[in-house]
Design a protein around this nucleic acid. Sequence first.
DNA 1: TTGTATGCGTTATCAT
DNA 2: ATGATAACGCATACAA
Lengths: 328, 328
Amino acid sequence: MVSIKDIAKQAGVSISTVSYALNGSDKVTEETCARILAIAKELDYVPNAAARNLKKRETKIIGVFLTDFRGDVYGDLLYGIKEILNRKEYDLIVCSGKQSHRMLPERMIDGAIVLDQTFDSEELLSYAERGHKIVVLDRELNHPHINQVLLDNKAGAALAIEHLLELGHRKLYVVTGPDGSYDSWQRMQAVKQTVERSGTAELIEIHGNFEKSGGEHAAETILRQHVSPDSGPIAVFCLNDEMAVGFYNRMAESELIIGKDIHIVGFDNIELAQYIQPRLTSINYSKTKWGAVAAEQVLKIIAGEDVEHERLYVTLVQRESAGTVFIP
Amino acid sequence: MVSIKDIAKQAGVSISTVSYALNGSDKVTEETCARILAIAKELDYVPNAAARNLKKRETKIIGVFLTDFRGDVYGDLLYGIKEILNRKEYDLIVCSGKQSHRMLPERMIDGAIVLDQTFDSEELLSYAERGHKIVVLDRELNHPHINQVLLDNKAGAALAIEHLLELGHRKLYVVTGPDGSYDSWQRMQAVKQTVERSGTAELIEIHGNFEKSGGEHAAETILRQHVSPDSGPIAVFCLNDEMAVGFYNRMAESELIIGKDIHIVGFDNIELAQYIQPRLTSINYSKTKWGAVAAEQVLKIIAGEDVEHERLYVTLVQRESAGTVFIP
DNA sequence: TTGTATGCGTTATCAT
DNA sequence: ATGATAACGCATACAA
């Protein structure tokens, strides 16, 4: 492995001069600088990250922590993060699983962006307490070193429920996320509020898990309860699209037709939403922007700037799964 | 930042004793070891990765390099990689973009798994030449430090073409990937061979790009050439599913019906394939296993073991997009 | 069993 | 403008 020592020897200068030259300091003659750079290139010199990190106490890398690597949301989110980070000479690494948490306290990364419910809030707080910089996308957490960039879950859920109410529904099934999910909890809050405010509507909560299986189970539950298909269409709000897909799958085996017998709305507007039949009405938000804002925030915290929690707006995307007007 | 020096001071021992204790060496009394560990925990000690990496010249991290973070293939692939690596005490980081290549030469990772055509083969070879360990999933590259884990592209393409031939087609449209794509090139080789071997069939190549837009363009090209819809169904083999989806999108605006007027086969069997209507016949392979094998190989190279190039088998998944028998 | 000392490759502070 | 040198935090060969 060729180090600055080798370059120094070759160039007949000291290692400090080499270091200055490589880092573009103006404390060295253009001439020697050029000579050193030439030798470095010739020797195929590459700096050693470990040594630099050890000395500088920074890595110029931001870690993104995800529950898993699947999931449609991540692609665009990561793209948004990467765009911003690269522009500021930072690199991005994506991690998943408890084992990888060490990257933060061991100082392999300068900051973290977390979208992973399985990452304990207490653990995060303890890292923040140690001085590590964190942006969370999936919970409320207050600490000088932690910033939040959250979806406007409440607005989204309200939009969904209002849409179903406008279609004339007075009985609403809502399929929730897993216990402990901040997004699910917040969306449910808004659901309840909106339903209550409507006065007349009835709310039936079905426990889900944000995965396809949750939607399948919900479909079965509803099929059991709704024996007569002539009692008018059924309204369903799945708190994410993934479950709506599972719901579709199970319903395909029944006699009920989505869009006609069942009006369903999802949340996230994943790519699949526009390909399943009928196309799924859903709550949309810019995943790219979400990532971009998160990246900006984490860099600001690192730079010591003041930051305020951010909130991303959402919109309703109307499609055929719940598009037709229905007055009972 | 608390270091072993602080622990040593607190425990009244030397830093080497602390180091031994923390690394579970048997050169230290159980008693002192326990005492040191207790102090370490109390002080909330976390080792500094940079210092350890600098000294040990290894990071226990494997980097995976992808073209982008979108793409359905990646989720399962990464899952397969992670499973194996975590089992062997290795961590996984996912990177994308030229900027992140530095991770390898700067020794931030012990090895790389590459599925990214934009990663120059020459660059990879130069890294291998410097002693870095690499597994490639998307090209043939021979070097003692490089191993290949490739799909059986030829078998897959042959399966697809044979299926269309069996349906009775004698005129086959094939939508290729971008120039320079190894997968596309190999699949085309097999396509040509299989068509030639059939004797009677005619092959029409349409240049694509492995993205949705490629499929859309291909659909337009075919719509222009095929003015009369009564000349029997058209056979299309998209060299990946993503393009097939684009093809569907464009065809939805025409009068031709996929599965009836058009028989189409894809490659990759992405999740969407089973949700678009009609469901897409495709070439399937285990993405999880692909990742697992790649991870095993890179660890073997690192361990200095001999490895041989691996090849993953593929199968045809018949669905309705090209299911019906058709004899002209 | 424990302590001393050295070096990993860099950066950065002082002299010169 | 350049050089000598001291850290950074850890692992380890060698001494005691």
